[in-house]
Design a protein around this nucleic acid. Structure first.
Length: 231
DNA sequence: TGCCAGGCCGGGT
DNA sequence: ACCCGGCATGGC
């Protein structure tokens, strides 16, 4: 048994510990692929609680669909996004995402196209590069959309991932995004359901136990792994 | 009361 | 290739 499978087992042990503690979370919270994509943009450096307020406002306006959202004036959209913070920035970013979707070959302009079916079947790495080329879509947002809205096998790395896994000495705290992503993807089976649940559990664990203001991981489901050997 | 939250961009070294 | 300031609201 080589080093690779040891590390795969170790990652699976961390996953199992979080799963045993919280149970399956079945992310992402959202009623449609498009709503998930909107949430991915709105939650950039923002507490989800604030995003929920903006999502609720959009739902009230029946605007959680690409056609309606695009038809809204930027000023109106800004007011709806206000509670999620960075609202001028996020208005531009959502509109940039909408421009990308509307320009996509096979774009479905029919009402209620929130399923984003016209994006299905596209190559993951191509779609990822295209999303990264959209102003305001960085690697975490792109991967969140790909994994949680489109069920494509890409691992999402976020601030909690960096904090938890660097505190556990699993990788250095200043590792670039793509290297952290590859760390997981090189060691885990390529499984959408696993990637989905793994990241969801990381966020829940981070939210619950590993906030910046509370660096100690007492009672954290991962606490027992803190003294394991590191590669 | 500050500090923090599921980033990303643009300009400067 | 990094490093940094800006972006903004709401909760603890």
């Amino acid at each position: 048994m080589g080093k690779g499978s040891y590390q795969q087992n170790r990652l699976m042990s961390l996953f199992s510990a979080m799963l045993a503690h919280f149970g399956p979370l079945r992310w992402w919270p959202g009623d449609s692929p498009f709503e998930i994509a909107v949430g991915a943009v709105l939650t950039q450096n923002t507490a989800w609680r604030n995003v929920e307020k903006a999502i609720a406002g959009l739902r009230e306006k029946k605007a959680l669909r690409p056609d309606i959202l695009y038809s809204m004036s930027p000023a109106e959209l800004e007011e709806l996004l206000r509670p999620s913070g960075f609202f001028r920035l996020k208005t531009r970013r959502l509109r940039a995402l909408l421009e990308y979707l509307r320009s996509y070959p096979g774009w479905d302009a029919s009402p209620g196209n929130a399923d984003l079916n016209f994006l299905r079947g596209a190559d993951l790495s191509v779609l990822r590069e295209e999303l990264l080329a959209v102003r305001g879509i960085g690697p975490e947002t792109a991967d969140s959309i790909l994994l949680y809205a489109l069920d494509l096998p890409t691992f999402v790395v976020d601030a909690y991932t960096m904090r938890i896994f660097s505190r556990h000495g699993i990788f250095p705290p200043d590792i670039p995004y793509d290297e952290a992503r590859e760390y997981f993807m090189d060691r885990l089976p390529q499984d959408v359901a696993l990637y989905n649940e793994f990241h969801a559990l990381i966020v829940r664990t981070g939210n619950t136990f590993c906030k910046k203001s509370r660096p100690l991981c007492a009672n954290c489901p991962l606490a027992e792994f803190l003294d394991h050997e590191v590669d």
